[in-house]
Structure formats: structure tokens, C-alpha cells
């Protein structure tokens, strides 16, 4: 089963964010108050290790399991969408205390009410798709 590897990666992600308490509303509250190094430590370590990994991949032209060149698609270099969209995302992140990955993890840990968060996030995504052409990007 080639697809089972993605389930494995997801399980790894679930354990990581649950066991480091990154799924906690209170940890996100603490982060936005700059009252602990914990969340910055998690994100900082991930980014430093991630930069090294990406540099390694680019320098040695590492191939994927399927033998293809690993490409990291570049982002469009326009800025309004990133600052405005990011701001709106940040409002929701702090309010709900969850971003997309923790939502799936908490759903699995038994907080079934988050199915409504998922439905609402899909509605938000759909709303973006509808009004996208009228928004500055």
C-alpha cells in the first residue's frame, strides 16, 4: 500500500502536536502573550532544521522516492494577500486556539464538536473562492 505512508506521517503529526501540547488553546494564548518560550521553541527548531533540510535537498539535488527532482513550488511575490489573509487567519487561530492540523488531531482525541469547526472552515474556504476576484492579492 503506497498510500499508507501518508497515514503514517499523519499519525506522527498527531503524536507530535498532541504530546508537545501545541493542540492546547491555552498554549496558543500563552504564545500570543509571549509568556513562554515553548511554542517558539517548537516552531523555531522546526524552521532551523527545515532550512537545513531544504538547503541539503537543493544542493545535492535529492530525488524523491519516485526518482523525480524534489521541487518546492515558489510563492507568488505579491504581498497584500499574505498580510491581509495572514491577519484574518491569525484572528481565527487565536480565537479558536487551533489551526488546521490540531483541529484534525483534537477531533480524533474525542472532541467531536470540532466537526463544526471543520464545516465552518470549509465554508470560509468556499466563501474565499467565491469573492476571490474582488479581493486585493
Amino acid at each position: 500500500m503506497r498510500m499508507s505512508r501518508y497515514i503514517f506521517v499523519g499519525i506522527l503529526l498527531g503524536f507530535t502536536l498532541y504530546k508537545t501540547e501545541a493542540v492546547s488553546w491555552f498554549r496558543i494564548f500563552e504564545m500570543f502573550h509571549f509568556q513562554s518560550f515553548h511554542m517558539y521553541g517548537i516552531i523555531g527548531t522546526a524552521v532551523v532544521a527545515g532550512i537545513l533540510i531544504v538547503q541539503f535537498i537543493r544542493r545535492y539535488h535529492l530525488k524523491s522516492v519516485e526518482g523525480k527532482e524534489i521541487v518546492i513550488p515558489p510563492k507568488n511575490k505579491t504581498y497584500p494577500r499574505y498580510i491581509i489573509g495572514g491577519f484574518i487567519f491569525g484572528l481565527g487561530w487565536a480565537l479558536a486556539g487551533i489551526c488546521p492540523a490540531p483541529m484534525f488531531i483534537l477531533l480524533g482525541s474525542g472532541y467531536t464538536v470540532l466537526i463544526l469547526f471543520l464545516a465552518s472552515a470549509m465554508a470560509g474556504t468556499y466563501f474565499y473562492g467565491v469573492i476571490r476576484k474582488r479581493l486585493p492579492h
Partner: peptide, 27 residues
Amino acid sequence: LMVIGGGFLVGFGARYAGGCTSGHAIS
């Protein structure tokens, strides 16, 4: 507000910005 409102803002904002914590902050 927290579950429904938060979800809507996260879904809308993530797509507008083209990514969330995993897509932008990490990747």
C-alpha cells in the same frame, strides 16, 4: 463564536494567504 467563528476565519484566512501554520510558518 469560538468554534464556528474561529473555523470560518481560519478557513477564509488560510486560503486568502495561501497557507496556514504548516504551509507558511514551517514549509
